[in-house]
Amino acid sequence: MAEATAEDELRSLIRDLVRIETENPPGNERACAEYIVEWFDDRGLDADLVREPYADRPQVGLRVGEGDPTLVVNGHIDVVPAGDRSEWTHDPYGGTVEDGRLYGRGSADMKAGVAVGMAATAALAEEVESGDLDGSIVFHAAIGEETAEPGTRTLLESGYDGDYGIVLEPTQLRAATSEKGLAWYEITVAGDPSHASHPDQGTNAVLAARPVLDALAEYDERIREREDDLVGNAYATVTMVEAGTKENVVPERATITVDRRFLPAEDVDEIDAEIDALLEEVAREHGVDAAWERTRTYESAAIDVDSELATVIRRHSAAAANADTDPWGIEASTDVRNFVNDAEMEAITWGPGDLAQAHTYDEHIELTNADAGLEALVGAAGELLEADR
């Protein structure tokens, strides 16, 4: 029987990870974290189950070596729910391979990246431990990224930090040195309930919400003029409107959800003030009683486009996969903010797969891109950590 190649082992690892359902919500990461610890143990590497911030949802931290500099490779193991399974051509947790693609929830976002990080850590461990490489390597398998929970931040605060960080989200091996921030707002418009046979007795919160929706549309149009060379435009998108309890009851409350994508130059406190001002103007002009709450926040983050880390990973990505080497920023939000903003580390978002596949039916990863990712990451890490650099 032919010996398994590195590509065979990587593809098997991606399949195994995809087959472990880790949907969040509710947060089913435990089985996957335990698998990863066992995988490293089989290779003589002592990974830890980190039971913070949640004891019942452990994550994984591993440090190999004690020298400097230290490279941290990070991936999250939670995935968004698969949704209506009848819409999938392939079992979302089957790990089916067809025409060079591996299908399944989380295959692109981001278990292929996690697998590449695991395989690279294992491949570099011997050189690190022997002293052929001066530096150290740290691996993260974090929980809760899909719902802005403090998984990665907790790992960094627990000592699994370093000098460089790579968040292995799907970028088709293009290095992102900046990313947009994300803030979710819930705006609640108050009314007064009544029976629908006497609608004028109450105040219909749905109708009261109209001027708020109009103001949000104008706000979105205005802030789209704000632009960053790497990550594009700012947005304020209404994504949900919820109201009513029964067909024959005038609704007493309407809740509007807004997805606010913001630029590295914008500050979330200033955005809060903009939402305040918007609702105050609606109240003055239309007498609408509305309140807001920011329910979730992913901060924006940026480093120098010509940082050493980005320069090295671009060169190895171009050699392995002819990846685009132009300066670039990612429009989505990732845990790279915890590296740059909280741990004050030089960090990028980079990894195999196409972000357009994230959260879709029949999500998939091109396996050749994962193969190239492993080659590029091992090469770049070796250069960053080499003794004679």
Rank of each mutant, 00 (worst) to 15 (best):
V231Y: 09
E179C: 00
L71N: 04
N338H: 15
D8C: 02
Q59E: 02
S307K: 11
L168E: 01
I313Y: 14
V80W: 01
R260D: 05
E7Y: 12
V114I: 01
E126G: 10
R43A: 07
G382D: 07
T89A: 09
G379P: 08
G162A: 00
I365E: 07
D388N: 15
P58Y: 06
T203W: 09
A343M: 11
R389Y: 07
V241T: 10
T295H: 06
M345A: 06
S307R: 12
A243H: 06
L384P: 04
G329C: 05
Y160F: 15
I348Y: 04
P53L: 01
R253D: 10
L355A: 15
R253V: 10
V305H: 14
G351K: 04
A302S: 14
V288H: 05
Y54K: 13
H286C: 05
A142I: 04
A208P: 11
I330P: 03
A243P: 07
I166W: 11
I14K: 00
G135V: 12
A283W: 07
P327E: 05
R314A: 01
V60D: 01
I77V: 13
D342L: 13
M240N: 14
A380R: 01
D161N: 12
E274Q: 06
D132I: 07
D163Q: 03
N369Y: 10
S300Q: 09
G106T: 02
A358I: 01
L10M: 06
A108C: 08
L230H: 13
I313F: 15
L207H: 14
P150K: 07
D214G: 08
A318I: 12
L71H: 02
G351T: 03
I137E: 00
L213E: 10
R63W: 03
Y361T: 10
T245R: 10
R153D: 13
R15M: 08
N369A: 13
D335V: 02
S107R: 07
D220T: 03
D99R: 09
E66S: 15
S194I: 00
G159P: 09
R389W: 05
I143R: 12
G106A: 02
R294G: 07
V282H: 05
A6K: 14
L168H: 02
F339R: 09
N338G: 11
S317G: 10
I14V: 04
S12Q: 14
W184Y: 15
W292Q: 14
G382L: 04
G162C: 01
L71R: 00
L278D: 08
E9K: 15
L10T: 06
D269F: 13
S178G: 12
V97F: 00
I303H: 11
R43W: 08
A122V: 15
D161T: 15
I365S: 01
T171A: 10
S86N: 14
V305C: 08
E21R: 15
P58L: 03
R226I: 11
T360L: 02
T152P: 03
Y93Q: 04
I365M: 07
E225P: 10
D342N: 14
D259S: 05
E145Y: 06
G191L: 00
I77P: 11
L168T: 00
P26I: 11
V206Q: 09
D48Q: 15
G232E: 00
D8L: 04
R226Y: 13
A47Q: 02
A142K: 01
A236T: 06
N338E: 14
D220N: 08
W39R: 15
G94A: 00
E34I: 08
L279S: 00
D229S: 13
D388P: 09
E126K: 09
R57H: 01
R51Y: 07
H198S: 14
V116M: 07
L168C: 01
